[in-house]
Simulated assay, not measured.
Amino acid sequence: MNKILTLKQFQDLAFEMINLEPYVEVTGESFIMGNEDEGIEKVASVWGFSRYSKPGYEIIYDWVAKGNLDGFLIDMFNFTIEPYNKGDFSPIFKGAVVLDDYKEPFAGHEISQKLLELIKPEMWIKWIPEFLPEPRMLI
């Protein structure tokens, strides 16, 4: 049987979980220097996920880090991190059904939206920068 949480219980649990250090994994990266003469665009991207877990519950946050392409090579490593929806939505909450005030279950995309509204962006990304490449790694 699935666990059932009220919206308040879900919010409390989400705040508690987001403060735990997640498991972070980089799943792909793309660094292309570009060449304007040949029409090759400059690209600096890193993809991955962060998994926040507590016994019986998980929040999985898929992310993409995009480098600043406006300047020199070193600027490509000035990353902006944002949610990356490689599936239907991100973040994903697993482990319980969350009920609204009318005792109806929230859909997955509604839970995802609630998480993004509830938790400040800097809380999602605070553990990620240490896993991103640095300029010396290209050499």
Rank of each mutant, 00 (worst) to 15 (best):
M1Q: 12
M1T: 10
L5W: 07
L5A: 13
L7F: 15
K8Y: 03
Q11C: 13
Q11P: 05
Q11K: 08
Q11R: 11
E16V: 04
M17R: 01
I18P: 06
N19C: 12
P22Y: 14
V24C: 11
V26Y: 12
V26I: 14
T27P: 06
T27Y: 07
G28L: 11
E29R: 14
S30Y: 11
F31R: 01
M33H: 04
M33F: 07
G34Q: 00
G34H: 05
N35R: 12
G39T: 10
G39I: 04
G39C: 08
I40S: 07
V43I: 09
S45G: 06
V46K: 11
V46E: 14
V46G: 09
V46S: 13
G48V: 01
G48E: 06
G48R: 01
S50Q: 06
R51E: 06
Y52L: 02
Y52N: 02
Y52K: 03
S53V: 00
S53N: 00
G56C: 04
E58A: 05
I59H: 05
I60H: 05
I60W: 01
D62M: 04
N68C: 09
G71I: 00
I74S: 15
I74E: 14
D75H: 07
M76P: 03
M76Y: 08
F77E: 07
F77L: 15
N78H: 09
F79Q: 05
F79H: 10
N85R: 05
N85K: 05
G87D: 08
F89E: 10
S90W: 10
K94I: 13
G95K: 06
G95Y: 10
A96Q: 02
A96C: 05
A96S: 08
V98F: 10
L99A: 15
E104I: 00
P105H: 03
F106M: 00
H109D: 04
I111H: 02
S112E: 02
L115Q: 04
L115W: 10
L116S: 05
E117H: 13
M123L: 13
I125K: 08
I125S: 15
I128Q: 10
I128D: 06
P129A: 15
F131C: 04
F131L: 10
L132C: 09
L132H: 12
E134I: 13
E134S: 14
M137S: 14
M137A: 11
L138N: 07
I139L: 12
